Simulated assay, not measured.
Amino acid sequence: MTKPITPPSWRKPAGMLAILAIILIWAILVVSASDYIGQLHILAQALIYLVAGIVWIAPLRPLLIWIETGSFSAPPEV
């Protein structure tokens, strides 16, 4: 059985632009703090950049759910 073709939603391109905006804003924030981070011990720098490299992913889950469902919360499990 084939799934009927549905027209593309405007949420997909809007979501892609939002993801790119999140990445750009996060990168600008991290780069602007690099002068202060660069003065820290090398292990502290590594830890900060490791955390900064992972933290930007947090807002993506609700955004990806919104792109697929139109709601920012996950649908209830059945």
Rank of each mutant, 00 (worst) to 15 (best):
G70E: 02
W10Y: 12
A18G: 08
A58C: 06
P62T: 10
S71F: 11
L63E: 08
W66I: 05
G38W: 05
G15C: 01
G15P: 00
A21Q: 11
P4E: 12
I37V: 13
L50G: 08
A18N: 01
I57S: 11
M1G: 09
A74M: 09
G53P: 01
I42K: 11
V55T: 15
A52R: 02
L20M: 13
I23N: 03
E77L: 11
A52N: 09
G38S: 07
I19L: 07
R61T: 15
S9C: 09
L17I: 12
V31A: 10
G38H: 09
Y49H: 12
W56C: 14
L63W: 05
L63K: 11
I54Q: 06
P8H: 15
Y36W: 13
L20G: 15
I48W: 00
P4K: 04
P7Y: 15
S73W: 13
P76W: 00
V78L: 09
L24Q: 03
W56A: 15
W66H: 08
F72S: 14
I5H: 11
I42N: 03
S32L: 07
A44T: 05
V31K: 15
L40H: 01
S73E: 13
D35F: 03
S34Y: 13
G53L: 03
L50W: 14
S9W: 07
G53D: 07
P4S: 04
G53W: 01
I25H: 04
A74L: 11
A33E: 04
P59E: 11
I54Y: 04
I19E: 01
T6D: 05
A33Q: 10
P8K: 13
L24C: 02
L63S: 13
A14R: 13
T69C: 07
I48V: 15
T69R: 14
I22F: 14
G53E: 02
E77F: 09
V55D: 03
V31C: 05
